[in-house]
C-alpha cells in the first residue's frame, strides 16, 4: 500500500499527459464533407484542414439551396424562374444582376445558338419524359415564342418580367451554385475546398497542402463513374456538357438536352462532350454549353476569347485539348487519341 501511494503522483502525471494528448488531437484540423441535393443534382462540399469544417460545408450547401429554391429552380413554385415562366414579375437585385451577367456572356460570345429560354424546347421534345419528335408546325410555334422571349429588367427597382418563352437557367445553375458555395467558404477564411454540383466542380487551394486536385473527366461512352482522363488543376472551375446526360434515341439518332436556338432542335454535331476549365463556375458552365452547341471550330475560338481551356471529345474518340492543359492532362484510357489545339 505504501508503494502504491508513492506511485500515485507518477500515474496521475501519466493520466494528465494522456488527457492532454487526446484533447490536442481531438480538436485537430480535419477534412470535412457534407452533401445534399440541389439544381437537380447531387451536391458535395469538402473543406480540407479546417476546424469547424463541417459547419462551413453545411453553410455552403444552405447557400446553394437558397439560390436554387428562390431563383434558379424551374420546378419549385416558390422560385423566381417559376413565377416568371407563369406570367409573374419578380423584384430581386440578385436575380437582376445575375441575368445581366448572363446577357453579357451571351453577347460577348456572339453565339446565337445558346439561349436562356430553352424551357419550351425541352417541354416540346420531352427529353426527360421518353422523347417526342415534334411536327414542323409545333416547332415553328415554339420558335416564334422564343423569338419574342424578351426579358425586361427595370434598372431602378430591379423589377423583372419576361415575354413569351420559358426561362431555363439550368445550363448555368450548377456553375452558379459552385460560385456561391465557394464564396460562402472564402468568407469563412477557408483556404482549401472542393465543391461539386452534378458534373460541375469548383476548387480552391489543395487537398493535401501540396498537390493540385485531380478531376476525372467522364468517358462519354462509358457509364457514370468511368473517366478517360484526369486533370490536375486548382483555383478554377470545371464543367462538362455532353450528349450522354439526358437524351433519347429514335432510329439510331441521339437527341440530347442541349438545344440549338436557331432551329429549336437538339444540337447535332461531331462533339460528344466538352469540358471547360475557367475562372468561375458560371463561365465554365456557360462555355461548355456554348461550345457544345456551336461546334469545334467556333467553339475553340470562343474558349480563346474567354481565356478558358477545353477538353473536347469527338464522337470518333479523338480528343482536342488546349495548350494550357498539356501538362495538366493525363490520359487514362488508350482508346482515345489526344491532340493539342494549335
Amino acid at each position: 500500500m505504501e508503494k502504491l501511494k508513492k506511485a500515485l503522483p507518477v500515474l496521475a502525471l501519466l493520466l494528465v499527459v494522456v488527457v492532454f494528448t487526446v484533447s490536442l488531437f481531438g480538436g485537430e484540423v480535419k477534412t470535412s464533407t457534407a452533401s445534399g441535393f440541389a439544381m437537380g443534382s447531387p451536391v458535395n462540399v469538402t473543406v480540407y484542414d479546417t476546424k469547424n469544417g463541417e459547419d462551413y460545408c453545411n453553410q455552403a450547401i444552405e447557400r446553394i439551396k437558397y439560390i436554387d429554391d428562390n431563383f434558379l429552380s424551374h420546378t419549385f413554385t416558390s422560385s423566381a424562374t417559376y413565377k416568371l415562366n407563369n406570367g409573374g414579375t419578380v423584384k430581386s437585385e440578385w436575380l437582376a444582376e445575375y441575368l445581366n451577367k448572363c446577357f453579357d456572356l451571351i453577347h460577348q460570345s456572339e453565339s446565337n445558338r445558346f439561349t436562356l429560354f430553352s424551357g419550351e424546347f425541352k417541354d416540346l421534345w420531352k427529353i426527360e419524359d421518353g422523347g417526342y419528335i415534334p411536327t414542323s408546325d409545333e416547332l415553328a410555334k415554339v420558335l416564334e415564342n422564343h423569338e419574342n422571349s424578351l426579358i425586361a429588367i427595370d434598372e431602378d427597382n430591379n423589377e423583372i418580367s419576361i415575354g413569351t418563352g420559358k426561362l431555363d437557367l439550368g445550363a448555368l445553375g450548377k456553375g452558379t451554385a459552385c460560385d456561391e458555395a465557394l464564396e460562402t467558404l472564402k468568407k469563412q477564411n477557408v483556404k482549401n475546398a472542393l465543391v461539386t454540383v452534378g458534373g460541375t466542380v469548383g476548387m480552391i487551394g489543395s487537398p493535401d497542402g501540396k498537390s493540385d486536385f485531380s478531376i476525372g473527366v467522364r468517358n462519354p461512352f462509358g457509364n457514370q463513374n468511368d473517366y478517360f482522363a484526369v486533370l490536375s488543376i486548382t483555383d478554377c472551375f470545371v464543367s462538362t456538357s455532353g450528349d450522354y446526360e439526358k437524351y433519347f434515341e429514335r432510329d439510331g439518332v441521339r437527341y440530347s438536352h442541349i438545344f440549338d436556338a436557331t432551329t429549336g432542335k437538339p444540337v447535332q454535331n461531331d462533339i460528344s462532350s466538352v469540358t471547360v476549365v475557367a475562372e468561375n463556375g458560371m463561365l465554365s458552365d456557360f462555355l461548355s454549353t456554348v461550345i457544345y452547341a456551336e461546334g469545334i471550330e467556333k467553339g475553340v475560338k470562343i474558349a480563346e476569347d474567354f481565356d478558358a481551356s477545353v477538353v473536347i471529345v469527338n464522337k470518333d474518340k479523338s480528343v482536342l485539348i488546349s495548350e494550357e492543359l498539356k501538362n495538366k492532362f493525363t490520359l487514362k484510357d488508350d482508346s482515345f487519341s489526344v491532340s493539342v489545339i494549335e
Binding site: T46, L194, G199, T200, V201, V217, Y227, T240
Partner: peptide, 9 residues
C-alpha cells in the same frame, strides 16, 4: 487509391 478527387461530366 488513385481515384480522382472529383468527376466532371
Amino acid at each position: 487509391t488513385d481515384l480522382p478527387d472529383a468527376m466532371t461530366g
